[in-house]
Nucleic acid binder design. Sequence first.
DNA 1: ATCATTCTGGTACGTTTGTACAAGTACGAT
DNA 2: ATCGTACTTGTACAAACGTACCAGAATGAT
Lengths: 181, 181
Amino acid sequence: MTGRRTRDPEARRAALATATMEVIAENGVGRTTHRAVAARAGLPLGATTYYFPTLDDLIAAGLAHATAMLRSCLDEWAERLRGAPDLAATLTELTREYLTDRQQVRLEYELCLAAARDARLRPLAEVWMRGFTDVLEPYVGAAAGRDICALLDGLILLTLTTGTDLDEPGLTAAIRRLTGG
Amino acid sequence: MTGRRTRDPEARRAALATATMEVIAENGVGRTTHRAVAARAGLPLGATTYYFPTLDDLIAAGLAHATAMLRSCLDEWAERLRGAPDLAATLTELTREYLTDRQQVRLEYELCLAAARDARLRPLAEVWMRGFTDVLEPYVGAAAGRDICALLDGLILLTLTTGTDLDEPGLTAAIRRLTGG
DNA sequence: ATCATTCTGGTACGTTTGTACAAGTACGAT
DNA sequence: ATCGTACTTGTACAAACGTACCAGAATGAT
């Protein structure tokens, strides 16, 4: 606790990671540049290379920050599911809420695609992929958990690419079927 | 049928679209450049801007070419399903085969993400999204068709990002559950 | 107070980028 | 044969790129 004002390296590092995440969500990994990140963070260009030697490092930091957000999102989901009387209905509602921030949703798929192309990023992508099935597992078992996760991912992708809305009753029914109900 | 040898504008246009598709699959939409496409097509740089005024046009042509391939892929799937005794098992087998070419799979998700970012590309993405559910609809109905499509998309994404193999028996069982069997 | 260290911010470099263009070549119509 | 049009290709250029670097300011240790 030093009460700094002018200098705060950790805050800068975090600000750069956040800004990178936002640029990735907006422009995609492939169009993420030092200058765009610096501008969004309100920091000079040199700050990006000072804290992250290469562009790949910067992007990895942005994606890591994104997975940290996803993880906290998962924690919230886990808690909401804990006391839920109707698992399928609750999952549907959570999905609906998740879809309100399309920027964030795009980010998730940017992460997946980046991990598909660069194996070093796979641990990050698995936080989301495996993390969600782990949340579901106690309720429905490992197999159904993975299936439901896949179903949600696919439906989210569908609404994202077609710009349509989620068919909530249909989703609830599908989840029930997958749980063997 | 003119038997040209030296000049063939349509062949060049097609070669550029194909090359663009390949570059997108390898590097992603965001890292697709005129020069990379020209090099892969074995054509001079100027050819890219002659046939496609801007980079966006070139990329759109590459994605359109990709959807054309996806459509023919869908046709093949439709035919294989037509005489299949066991729908779920056949779909699992088709998915397994589809996953052998990861480059092509990545391309599909590049298309989805590009469509999510640029509404003008949505008609292309819908060829795949809706096309597959249309193939399934006669067998399982519209709702289950969409759910199975989503399930497959999600599982394909999972295997793509984690680098793992498909759980074939699990997929077959999940499809059976979604069809109400 | 001094000093080594760490952080800051601006500038600079060589490369790669999208796009424009001009000079030249092939081809269909006449 | 010739002529206009369509195609070809190499080159050019300004902008943006990743990265390197340096002079200085702030900081903690002494």
